[in-house]
């Protein structure tokens, strides 16, 4: 009888392994053979979106402006999980940087199916105390960044006759927020930009939409004064902040073929804030 027990255990394990590996997989979205670029993809919502796309088979390019360490961490986390990712540094507000980044994409994967314009910054000040630099920098990253990235992406996507562009706006654009004239203006701009570009590119099967995340647990949220964050919590129907993964869910939908009849729209992910 000796040795019998370990043998059955091994057989049991083998049967279990066979069972699990042959279980029908219910993949929610499939991005196999798709190339995605996520701007500001190293941290927060961008990181969650990058991970979620890679997990479902996309080859993900993570763009970052300055935090190389965070970008490399996201890349290695994706690779450890068996996904495909690489990082490219570029300031989205800098035309030359963006042109170089797209040069790498053209010479590398040679196509781009999904562009997630997630890079964005805050420089909250009451207008009376807002410097010109605070104004310009927010506009440069949040709005000019769309001009640069979408312009280069459109070239590739028109040629492919396929593409999904997902921009990021904010409830501030709709309801306004003291201290965010620059940010709210830029994010309202994102909505107009999204609707207009959707009209330009629809006939090439390139669809342009936006997500509108409310209060999400990211570094950006921590930039808000604590009392402001608490006050905001009161206004959220679900009485909790969202997670980056919950925003990624909406991005995945807009990046997938399941949303092929949707363009020029904004999906709000805010737990009932607005």
């Amino acid at each position: 009888m000796r040795g019998h027990f370990p043998l059955t255990k091994a057989i049991k394990r083998a049967i279990l392994f066979f069972y699990i590996s042959h279980m029908p997989k219910t993949m929610d979205f499939d991005f196999a053979n798709r190339v995605a670029l996520v701007t500001g993809g190293s941290r927060g919502i961008g990181r969650a979106v990058s991970m979620a796309l890679a997990e479902r088979g996309a080859s993900v390019i993570i763009n970052y402006a300055g935090n190389r360490e965070a970008a490399e961490k996201t890349v290695s986390d994706i690779q450890t999980a068996g996904g495909d990712a690489r990082a490219i540094q570029a300031d989205v507000a800098d035309t030359t940087d963006v042109e170089n980044m797209f040069g790498e994409i053209r010479n590398g994967p040679g196509r781009l199916d999904i562009l997630v314009n997630n890079a964005g910054i805050l420089r909250d000040k009451l207008l009376m105390f807002m410097s010109e630099d605070d104004w310009d920098r927010v506009m440069d990253v949040n709005i000019k960044g769309l001009y640069t990235c979408c312009k280069s992406a459109a070239r590739l996507m028109i040629g492919q006759k396929y593409g999904k562009i997902i921009n990021t706006t904010s409830p501030s654009a709709i309801v306004g927020r003291a201290g965010q004239t620059n940010y709210a203006a830029s994010k309202a701009g994102v909505i107009g930009f999204t609707r207009s570009l959707a009209r330009e590119l629809a006939r090439f099967h390139v669809y342009v939409n936006a997500v509108c995340p409310g209060m999400i647990q990211t570094e950006m949220l921590h930039q808000l004064p604590e009392n402001v964050a608490e006050e905001m919590l009161e206004g959220i129907a679900m009485k909790r902040f969202g997670t980056p993964e919950e925003v990624a869910g909406a991005v995945l939908f807009l990046a997938s073929e399941k949303s092929d009849y949707i363009t020029g729209q904004v999906i709000t992910v805010d737990g009932g804030l607005t």
């Binding site: 459109a154 070239r155 028109i158 040629g159 330009e200 006939r203 090439f204």
Partner: peptide, 13 residues
């Protein structure tokens, strides 16, 4: 003019 975008891309290619 939007159709022209297609030709712009095709010429580049």
């Amino acid at each position: 003019s939007i159709d022209a975008l297609e030709l712009v891309v095709a010429l580049e290619k």
